[in-house]
Design a protein around this nucleic acid. Sequence first.
DNA 1: AAATCGGGGTC
DNA 2: GACCCAGATTT
Length: 358
Amino acid sequence: MDISKGLKKYFTTQLLSWHRNDNDRNLPWKNEQDPYKIWLSEIILQQTRALQGMPYYLRFTETYPTIADMAAAKDEDVFRIWQGLGYYNRCKNMLATARLVTTEFGGKFPDTYEGIISLKGIGPYTAAAIASFAYGLPHAVVDGNVYRVLSRYFAIETPFDTTEGKKQFATLAQELIDPAHSQGYNQAIMDLGATVCTPRNPLCDQCPLQKNCVAFHQNLTTLLPVRSKKITVATRHFNYLVIKWADRIWLRKRTGKDIWENLHEPLMIETEQAIDKKELLQITSFKELQLEYGSIDFAGNGTQRLTHRIIESRFFTVDVEEKPSFIPEDGFWATPAELATIAFPKTVLSFLRNNLYF
DNA sequence: AAATCGGGGTC
DNA sequence: GACCCAGATTT
């Protein structure tokens, strides 16, 4: 990189000035002092918009005011609160970290960058955010906002989703941070990216950096930042058998390194293509269940659009009078009361609620 | 280096 | 429909 010192100096000075005088973005975790709550907010906000994460942050801080409270909670209770937020390994790692800090560190959150980044679920971004916001340490955050603001202001065309790009932006960000005002700098660059230097239709007329922004003057804002890879979306077909016996339905917790790990669902048979009831009855794995499928009915479907997947779900209800013997052993018969205490994928939750299972 | 992991907002 | 969001982890 060959960027003049003046251009960098102007960037930092203007950014901090804007933050002090004109930044009116107000969020509940801003100016928070408690490392636990700062950490909690950063985990929730990974790949998650602030407005989407806010109700979850408020519920978590209300339910678990301290990290010891979270550490003492039952896994299921924590996952239930996380339900609907996505990327459920964040929840799993968060719980593991809460328990490690509570039991091994006496409840004291690590206060060095190296100590922070060694924790599960914490990478370069989150470690820099906690280090600066909680302890004033001079580590520059690099998130999606930073890629956008820096790539435009300096007209950097290196794709940010490559090893080279990540290194280049991280180095530049670290050069730009004011070590004496690391919290303000990190807060400012993310707030500017979220409210002014937006992905589409940025508010350049309100931008404190416009005077020296290369992308603005060369009309490149719509071309920056550059992403190298395109997202490919594959479709999966999940066929759910909602088996009801007495007032209970059969559920199991998803395991393995797959989508929705640790969430619950009815018995599910995945197929390459969408199938109807007639085709379902021909599937070997279905026949092996030896259900009284005279009562099986197609009961609805759902489409869940994710970033890189489309999940097409079909729900079939199976009412049985006798408790089936050939159901897999890794599940349980859930009562209506239990359904309200465990976590489901959104599409499963919608089906159960819409069909008055609880 | 590339693939995975959710769900919602925006245009 | 495509892209993005206070990214991290595994393959």
